[in-house]
Design a protein around this nucleic acid. Structure first.
Lengths: 187, 187, 187, 187
DNA sequence: GATGAATGAGAATTCATTCAT
DNA sequence: TATGAATGAATTCTCATTCAT
């Protein structure tokens, strides 16, 4: 009763996500994951049919959060005020998904030929499109890309930005707002 | 006279840079590079003592351009006007280095344990510091990171930004200026 | 009463025989057999103590038929007429065993080191010896081998022989008779 | 000068053919082949791009002999006399190819999904068709299959046939002739 | 300025098998 | 009468690297 159903499967996903992000998907061997979990490689294959499949599961798991925010935002009219609201909302709703987004960014090339890499790309694309339009001009598109980048940097530390998390997040939202509304924000 | 000094060495670097960027450093084998050049793997080892060493050479080759702009900018006083001038200057002086910067970005994890990966990081750091200060606040640091990101996106196409190169570059400079000067730019 | 004794055990044997013959013993994994039956691999181990053991059961099951014909024929005097009678008898009495004989032939190498592979070999040997003698000359031995081969080809389709089953069987018996009696048979 | 070109490649093929025939293709690991040759597994991969590829090379190597006899025989008119001539000719011209034919027969299932397994099948088919016709009746087709089988048994020892090689071959030719000409042969 | 032949280390994957429940 | 979870040993294959020529 105390045993959670398929504890191991969860732990594999978690450790894999950590290692894939830290060292890269290609540089991380299944041996390494297995050792870290103190199981055998074959145990990984009991739970996932391939290395790729671990990634697939990771993506599947987090798709929900993104879809949710996309659906919520899609109904909003495309006004600067609503874009601002979306920007403010994203950090709270996507916190749990951030590790995956970071993983995706760091493993860009490795995901290029992954069968579900495209899916991940699409998720990010949908996020971006919340702040812009497919037929907006280059500047608008660029602004929304940068706004999303700002939010990501706010949520996960970049070695270059030394400030503590809350301050970082505050700055990120502020700059992101400026980018999507085209207005300087007062602190 | 007819033979340029080490033609092959140049071709190796060029092909390697292409493949490393397209497919990732880890996913690109020396066999693949050799095949593309129609030489044997052993020939690569005549010119470079290891796979890592190709990267080292790549970095070495482009370091000059960056150093140059860094030196030029370092003498300028840290005013908004000069930061703007730097932003405007970067695209012209770094065009040749862009492929390498893109390579670095795309192979973040692979370069993490490369002996000269740190060097590349430092180059980018120096570039960033031209627009900011080590002891600036989080917002300032973030702004300069995003400004550099804007310029990079301007120079190399991101699948998401569909506009043609000149328009893309124009938008990039405009947004970058806005980010580093804190002022909305008029077209 | 409604449940036949060990239904599953029978189904495992049947599916295993099919797959072993189609794809070869080595190429057929227990996973595949289990999947085809929609049970787990562990279920196979409930019924058989090893993969080898499935083969053992298969052989055991069919030994009866062969033994029967061998015993019947052993009592007959070694005359051409009786050899002819044996040839004519074999197809009717061995029809049920044919799948196993085909399996044995197709998995010759795999059965070489099977503990009961020898048994199967012996069964075939006994069959052969019904038509020949251990101390017959090379030609006689060859004739009886070919006669048995003819009968087998008659019973199971070879891709090369396109005729429908009854015609095939008729031709097989005719040629087999000719081989063991040394006389051209009239249709 | 004393060094034969690619000695190793030849030795790999030879040892592989031996082991594949003795133990079966699937049961023979590259490790085993490598050990027998006192080289590393990787050396095999220098000479052949996969395990399959060794088989391909084997087939390629022997195709010539078969093609030759097929071409010679194709020009002959389809009379019983010529069929007899073909039967008599085959053992001399196919001696070198026999090991491969034996390999093919013993590894029937393993070759079923080999990309060049079909090729081998076709070679045998062509051989068969020299003694028969695509639209001959079942009996004729069966006779030529058995005649070829007889010749093969004559060339390679079957455990069941104990006679020494020359006698075996003599018997084989005799029986094969009888099968294709439909006439009892006098010794 | 190259090549041909080889290696050692390690990767992903598959398999038959076991055992507690 | 089964299953879920796991293992150990093996397999095919790839890679960066070396070295004599």
């Amino acid at each position: 009763m105390a045993e959670r159903r398929s504890d191991t499967r969860q732990r594999i996903q978690q450790v894999a996500l950590e290692l894939f992000t830290e060292q890269g998907y290609d540089k991380t061997s299944l041996r390494e994951i297995a050792e870290r979990l103190e199981v055998t490689k074959a145990a990984l294959y009991y739970h996932f049919k391939s290395k790729e499949d671990i990634v697939t599961a990771l993506i599947e798991d987090m798709r929900g959060d993104v879809t949710e925010v996309v659906e919520w935002a899609s109904d909003l009219p495309r006004t600067p005020e609503h874009r601002a609201e979306i920007v403010r909302h994203i950090p709270t709703v996507l916190t749990r998904s951030m590790p995956l987004l970071r993983f995706a960014q760091v493993n860009e090339t490795a995901l290029r030929d992954h069968p579900h890499g495209a899916d991940l790309g699409q998720l990010m694309w949908q996020l971006l499109m919340l702040l812009s339009d497919e037929d907006a001009d280059a500047e608008h598109q660029l602004r929304s890309v940068l706004a999303m980048a700002a939010l990501m940097i706010g949520m996960v530390p970049l070695p270059i930005i030394t400030a503590p998390a809350p301050e970082r997040m505050g700055a990120a939202v502020k700059v992101a707002l400026e980018l999507v509304t085209g207005q300087i924000q007062s602190a």
